[in-house]
C-alpha cells in the first residue's frame, strides 16, 4: 500500500508553472494554495494577478482571478472587495508592481485599512523585462539599467515597504519572510495563513513580503542565489513582524 506523501494543493491548478528553474514564485504560489486549502476558502477567494513575471498567476489558482494593470492590483482588489465584502481577496505582486509604479495604490489601500491581503515578492530586480533596477535593488547592485551598480546619488536608496506600511495607522498585519530554507518556508506559510485569517476576521489590511530569488537575472545558479539572498538582501531587509494588531479590536 502506497502512502501519499506529496500532493498538489487543491487550490493550485494542474498546469506546469512557466517560471525559470530555481525561481521562488512557484514555492510561494504553492504556499498560498496550501493556505487556501487549510482555511477552506477556495470557493470565496478572488485573486488579483499583477504585471511582472507572475502575470499568469490567474492560470495557476483554481479560484476566480482578475488580471490587473501594472501596479494597480490594490485598487482592483479594493473594487472587488467593495463590490462583495464577503469574498476573500488577495493580490500577488512583485517589487516593481507594488513598490514603484503602484506605490500610491499600495499605500492608500493600507491607509484605508482595506480588508485585503497582499503577497509581495521582493527579488530586488525586474524579471519580466530582463533584469532592470527595481525600487528594491540594493546599493551597488548591477542591473541592466544600473550597469555600474546602483548609486545612492543617482538612484537613491532601496525602499523598505514593510517598514513603511507598518507606520500607517491602517495596516493590521505586516511581516517580512523568506523562502531560502525549509524553516523559513514553513514560517512564510504560517504568515500567509495569518494574513488571510486577519482578513477573514475583518481586521483590515495585511501584507506578507517574501524575499525571493531571480537566478536568471541575477546570473547565479539557484543555490548561489539563495546564498546571495542571505548575504545581501537579509541584512538590508530584516525578517520579522513589523505590525500586528490582529490580537485586539481595532
Amino acid at each position: 500500500m502506497m502512502e501519499t506523501i506529496f500532493e498538489r494543493p487543491k487550490a493550485l491548478a494542474d498546469v506546469p508553472f512557466h517560471y525559470c528553474p530555481g525561481c521562488t514564485h512557484g514555492i510561494v504560489h504553492r504556499l498560498i494554495a496550501e493556505v487556501i486549502d487549510e482555511l477552506g476558502i477556495e470557493g470565496d477567494t478572488i485573486g488579483v494577478a499583477p504585471v511582472g513575471c507572475a502575470v499568469f498567476a490567474y492560470n495557476y489558482f483554481n479560484c476566480d482571478m482578475q488580471e490587473a494593470a501594472h501596479g494597480r492590483a490594490p485598487a482592483v482588489a479594493t473594487g472587488i472587495k467593495r463590490a462583495n465584502p464577503e469574498n476573500i481577496i488577495f493580490t500577488y505582486q512583485g517589487d516593481g508592481d507594488l513598490a514603484a509604479i503602484g506605490t500610491a495604490e499600495t499605500v492608500h489601500a493600507a491607509t484605508r485599512s482595506e480588508n485585503i491581503t497582499i503577497i509581495f515578492l521582493n527579488n530586488a530586480i525586474y524579471g519580466m523585462t530582463g533584469g532592470q533596477m527595481a525600487p528594491t535593488s540594493l546599493v551597488g547592485q548591477v542591473t541592466q539599467t544600473t550597469p555600474y551598480g546602483r548609486k545612492v546619488e543617482m538612484q537613491g536608496y532601496p525602499i523598505r515597504m514593510s517598514e513603511m506600511l507598518a507606520t500607517l495607522e491602517g495596516s493590521s498585519f505586516i511581516k517580512r519572510c523568506s523562502v531560502d530554507s525549509i524553516k523559513n518556508i514553513n514560517d512564510t506559510r504560517a504568515s500567509i495563513k495569518k494574513a488571510f485569517q486577519c482578513q477573514i476576521d475583518k481586521k483590515g489590511f495585511s501584507m506578507v513580503e517574501v524575499l525571493s530569488t531571480c537566478p536568471t537575472n541575477w546570473g547565479l545558479s539557484p543555490a548561489e542565489s539563495m546564498d546571495w539572498l542571505r548575504d545581501n538582501m537579509m541584512p538590508y531587509y530584516p525578517l520579522g513582524v513589523y505590525k500586528d494588531v490582529t490580537g485586539g479590536d481595532r
Binding site: G130, Q144, P215, N217, G219, L220, S221, P222, E224, S225
Partner: peptide
C-alpha cells in the same frame, strides 16, 4: 553584459 548575465547560472 546584460544578456550574458543569464549564462551565469550555468557557469
Amino acid at each position: 553584459d546584460a544578456g550574458a548575465i543569464a549564462l551565469g547560472q550555468y557557469n
